[in-house]
Amino acid sequence: MKKILLFLITLALWFVFAGRVTIEVFLLGTIICSILSLMFVDNGFKLVQMKYETKEFLLKIYYILLVIISFIYDVFLSAVRVSRHAFEIKPSFSPRTVRIKTSLENTNSMAMLINFITLPQGTLAMDFDNLSKNYFIHWIDVHSDDEAEIKKARISKHENLVSKLFG
């Protein structure tokens, strides 16, 4: 089952890179992809930590689409806010560094949350402490303490979305 799934994924990537569908391309792709799927069948799935059924697998695809759409929307929203600072005559900031504790357990979802902190919302992940599970975050425009609490709540909304993905 795992071998067939990995074989189909690599064959689809092969067709995308080749750019056309003929018999010769299909035969060469079958040989290369079968070798690759036999070689990496143990290591590849250990990285993804995949242990759910096919019905949950379709639900995961829906969550992945939801995550990507919200991700691209947030990137545009925060790029407008940063680029407005770039065209001012005197750029005025009020940056500060904050640390945030996460409640995630899985290693993949912690690495996924770094992507969510770094690109959207005007934040930047500086460092990650592995023992106490703290992120050190650099904010670009926080004017008071109340605004910091609102934005921390906005990060925990992303955290719920990520925790649905990997569990």
Binding site: V75, S78, A79, V82, S83, A86, P95, L119, L124, I140
Partner: peptide, 11 residues
């Protein structure tokens, strides 16, 4: 430096 990195990542 860090504010420069904000411009270099998001925009």
């Amino acid at each position: 430096f860090y504010t420069r990195l904000h411009a270099g990542s998001k925009c």
